[in-house]
Amino acid sequence: MLEKLKEILVEELDVEMEAVTLEANFKEDLEADSLDMMQLVMEIEEEFEIEVETEELALILTVGDLVAYIEKKQA
């Protein structure tokens, strides 16, 4: 899952693979704005067959947060 997620992040946020660490903060490190995050959400929903609530998105600050969120949703 992590590998696939990284691919999506590199593609959608136009960042280098090396920048996508679990600690990377979407806003600070990956320079993602609110609409980038929505694009990301749509790709993730399609890829991992989950539904992401927009309200919950505010709590996802880092790549690690997103990984944990997807794992929880898929469980």
Binding site: S34, L35, M37, M38, V41, M42, T54, L57
Partner: peptide, 8 residues
């Protein structure tokens, strides 16, 4: 307007 949801 809920901008993010509208975008989606």
């Amino acid at each position: 307007m809920k901008g993010q949801d509208v975008f989606k």
